[in-house]
């Protein structure tokens, strides 16, 4: 059974004059690492909100079709009920940190759901060591850098032990080094059997780990498949997706009659392919 299933789902926010999602059909199974990408305003964020029930429970609007997450229809379940199934990490880290120190932040979710205090303490300690937050333990969110804040935000979502991690451009406000760190953490979670759905523009950093890329444009899914199949399409450049440089080189070589055999996603892969070819 698929973990997430969009069935002809359309959505329009109240007060908006266009559909944010148009007849989206998408199935995601357990353990996948799905990268969603596409130009701004194409509906990526709405798609993320749909998975944990913020759409339609928090953001009201006109709906058609259904979304089933872990067998639950998001129309009938509150966001809190979905919280232990799908955790959502947002773009701005500082808006996700609502308490005065890291321990409290991580404990916030489980406390809200009435988890036993001993268990909450256990989860907090586990996540502090997992995400290397020991030195931040007593810090005010304002005293942390963006990357540190985002790490704490991820920890606070993981404290709810969700099956699915949805991250909506978690690196857009971070410098490249911190962005890489966050993306490594997310890739690591996927290796530990968590289903990951990531909205990201920096495809050169994520496509090597992703099992699938979903390309969106204008509220629709326009392409869906493995990174190597999707990124070589001309469509990517037409709608302005950040295709990895290595893949671009492969394409230009191919256009001039040199076929490298398989599609490289990183510089190293390209280098090995070129070495083999020459």
């Amino acid at each position: 059974m698929p973990l997430i299933e969009f069935q002809d789902f359309s959505f329009k926010y109240y007060g908006a004059d266009f559909l944010a999602l148009k007849k989206v059909n998408l199935t995601i199974s357990e353990g996948e690492y799905v990268v969603i990408t596409g130009p701004s305003g194409c509906g990526k964020t709405t798609l993320c909100r749909t998975i944990n029930g913020l759409v339609p429970q928090f953001h009201r609007g006109y709906i058609a079709g259904n979304v089933l997450v872990d067998g639950k229809n998001t129309r009938d379940h509150t966001v809190a009920e979905m919280a232990t199934i799908a955790g959502l990490v947002f773009q701005q880290p500082e808006n996700q940190l609502v308490t005065l120190n890291v321990e409290k932040e991580i404990a916030f979710g489980p406390e809200n759901l009435g988890v036993d205090p001993v268990e909450v303490r256990h989860r907090v300690e586990e996540l502090i060591s997992l995400l290397d937050l020991e030195h931040l333990r007593d810090k005010h969110p304002h005293e942390m850098s963006g990357g540190e804040q985002q790490r704490v935000a991820i920890a606070s979502i993981l404290a709810l032990k969700p099956k699915i991690m949805v991250a909506d451009e978690p690196t857009s406000n971070l410098d490249p080094k911190n962005a890489e760190l966050i993306l490594d953490i997310i890739a690591g979670l996927n290796k530990r059997d968590m289903t990951v759905i990531l909205v990201e523009h920096r495809l050169d950093l994520v496509s090597k780990d992703a099992s699938r890329i979903v390309l969106m444009n204008d509220g629709r899914i326009v392409a869906d498949g493995t990174p190597r199949n999707i990124l070589v399409k001309d469509l990517c450049q037409e709608i302005g997706v950040g295709v990895p440089k290595a893949t671009l080189v492969y394409k230009s070589l191919k256009n001039r009659g040199i076929d490298l055999g398989s599609v490289p996603l990183t510089g190293e892969e390209l280098a090995t392919l070129v070495k083999e070819a020459s």
């Binding site: 913020l54 959502l88 609502v98 759901l113």
Partner: peptide, 26 residues
């Protein structure tokens, strides 16, 4: 705007969901 985005994040973490909220440090 910020308040809305904070509310989203709190909602996603079950703010106010359980009438029997627990506290890690009493």
């Amino acid at each position: 705007r910020r308040a809305l985005s904070i509310a989203e994040s709190m909602e996603s973490r079950g703010f106010g969901a359980s009438p029997h909220r627990t506290y890690m440090n009493r």
